[in-house]
Design a protein around this nucleic acid. Structure first.
Lengths: 201, 201, 201, 201
DNA sequence: GATGAATGAGCATTCATTCAT
DNA sequence: GATGAATGAATGCTCATTCAT
């Protein structure tokens, strides 16, 4: 049984993701969550507070997921990249609603706290990626002249774009059944092969 | 001298891109454009009408830009891909405001006409890309087992993502002067090398 | 025919006077004035703006009413005091709604502009009174040891109090017909006699 | 140690006096008093009930303070008037918060019980004053043609006005230290002299 | 053709109060 | 006896749009 707060956060995430922050009214959220309108102010201190709580609660989880992968001593850099791709494809999928939403609203006016938090998470993700590449370069298996930021942007942009335009790409890929899983699998295979070609010496 | 309609469209594009469709009020647009509020309804039949007019007018231009490249007989497929990258990097940049905006609003409720138009443009862009790849495969210089939709998604997602997070990537790339041009150049070089590694046999 | 703005101001004055600023809703005012709720924001920029406009417009008139009396060369100070009483009794009555209202709300939080304006008018009224007393003292017909501020407070407090508790005093005075005029007359007579006893040498 | 009820009453008195009845929320009061919001309804039956309890509890005390002065056989009417002024200046000061508040809210809609109680207290105060004047007139030391209601209104209005505009008058009187006591003293001296001039034969 | 006054629905929020515990 | 979660009405305000001029 979900708590009313958690329920509101879930519905808010869905609606924000579908219609944007400004396009979603607290009435919509309250109706969808089956609670009184005033509960949003009651629980979260208002619409802005709801947004902050939503982003914070979800980002908190996303932040701490790959640190152990980077520091793992038993895996080669190549294996790490493949595992990172696996995990990201799945993590991004799991949080695609939030990601799409954060992507939409490229800056939250007057909510610097949120902007900082988002930048922090983005930077943390980038650094995990970067450390693995650097390790591979030092160890000799990766090319020396890689543009790491743009390499990261390729992955990040690809994931966001695919999840955002899921239907369009399922159509192009002629995926008709079990859409989600099939798309994810194709993406994993494609990305691994992509990075193998680009990165490896 | 711009016509008042065109002026309104420009300001609307900018504001929609910055604050989203719902987040922008017709008052904002009218003030910014220096016209009376009722002009938006007068000229475009309302806020939705303004949006439709905006997207239509801009997409019209974007649609017909690469047909001649595909059919050019003097260029090799490899040269075509490189030219396509060049042109797309620049076209996407030129229309980044509109792209960012269309990206934000992933579907325009009750405005199927627009959704169709957008899908049409996306499909047209995809087909231009696809035809060049197919030509290269037939001719033998490109790999046979390419996932063309995801290859296209890599390019499309990369461009949208970079332009959306321009500041973040300029920071990572330590670009400080002449930001726009410097970023565009790095992107072109990176993408050409990326596709060379992936596509070529 | 009153303009809608003026009509709103009048109804606002009445309602503010009866129920206070916080106790009056813009809906009340709009209903009473027979206009749409949003007109209050439209005309005056909101509830606070309406208050400011109301106080400003009314105080503006009150401010400039006695300067000429003070500077009149043909009247003796004693005659001036009697005329001042006459005029004040009537002016306070005319603006008793606003006075009662301003009295109620002893300070308008966050509306310093208003507080300043009110202080300015109070000070201007006090100075008119003071100048006449000083003239009478110099000329020798008034006592030398008068506490001018408290003498002024006696008049000011009396007027506010009587108009505020009109019904109570009409009852005590057994005034039953033509209440307003009868009360005003009694007040004039009483005040003239009061000041004659206190001020004159 | 104050009981929670008494504590709530005190904070309510302060806040009502500062911001008026409508301008004060039960949340404000509960927060200020450090109790749960629902306690106000619990103890007093709601916001209106709190107001009634407040006014009743305070007026009860104010009502029975001067009866003995009137009936005192050892003082002359003149001495009684002077003592009455002394006591009123102090009593009004002590209860200035409540007085200012009751003054603000000239009638409590739908709360006739309160209005009656307040009228009763006002009438009781007036009668004490009146009886002393009548005694002085009968005894021959006071003028015969005094307008007793307005004479009473002069005193009552003066006190309310001065306490309401304390800062304004302290400024005019150039009182800078020990404001309260200094103002009270000046008022006593002034009022005694005022009434001596007016009342005495 | 163009304006600006006016509208009514909808917005986020706060209110006093209630009720299960 | 006392609490705090929850409610629905009401708050001030902004919205896109209309309409007489």
């Amino acid at each position: 049984m979900k708590s009313p707060e958690e329920n509101i956060l879930d519905k808010a995430q869905l609606l924000f993701s579908q219609k944007g922050f400004s396009g979603t009214s607290v009435r919509d959220i309250a109706n969808e969550a089956g609670v009184n309108i005033s509960m949003i102010s009651y629980y979260f201190g208002g619409k802005n507070g709801l947004l902050t709580a939503l982003v914070k609660s979800r980002l908190e989880i996303m932040k701490s997921h790959l640190g152990d992968l980077v520091e793992n001593k038993k895996l080669t850099p190549q294996e790490k990249i493949e595992l990172l791709i696996e995990k990201w494809v799945e993590k991004f999928w799991e949080y695609r609603l939030l990601n799409n939403f954060i992507l939409r609203e490229n800056n939250f006016e007057l909510m610097d706290e949120l902007n900082e938090l988002i930048t922090e998470v983005k930077m943390s993700r980038y650094n995990n990626f970067r450390l693995i590449i650097l390790e591979g370069q030092k160890e000799g298996s990766f090319k020396k002249d890689l543009n790491i930021p743009l390499l990261y942007g390729t992955l990040s942009g690809f994931l966001k774009h695919l999840y955002f335009s899921e239907d369009f790409y399922c159509q192009l890929l002629e995926i008709e059944e079990n859409k989600d899983q099939a798309l994810l699998n194709q993406m994993k295979i494609y990305l691994k092969s992509l990075y193998k070609y680009i990165i490896n010496e």
